[in-house]
Amino acid sequence: MKQYILLFLTMTSFLIVVTRCADYPIDEDGLLITDRAECYVSNFDLLGTDFQTARTAAPAIDTTAQTINIEVFFGTDLKNLYPQFTLAQDAKLDPKITGKEDFSDLTNPKKWTVISGNRKVRKTYTVYVTVQQPS
């Protein structure tokens, strides 16, 4: 009986050691690299300094052309907007968004690259902002 218990304990310990040493790859940001190859933007918003949405309607996101067209309210302060992306699962954004962004140069739209979960697919999206005008 004692021998069986010892054998069981030894095997369990061995299994724990083997499984805990499994190697999960992480990227340079410490994020888990997964098997997912999906790489797209599913939603986008721009928030003003009051952290309220500045968009007049849902943005037009073209995942083929890799563009985002968004209209903001008349009078929006374009120099101080917080972009907000929703991405495919496990994907990340480059460059990272760390605060307010300046969208005031409408002739040079800003670009962000979406990187898939497996870190092998990269797609650069261009954000075109237009301002609502009086009719």
Binding site: F73, F74, G75, Q132, Q133, P134, S135
Partner: peptide, 10 residues
């Protein structure tokens, strides 16, 4: 009241 935009109190 500006047509086409929300101006209101500014």
């Amino acid at each position: 009241s500006v047509p086409g935009v929300t101006f209101n109190h500014s």
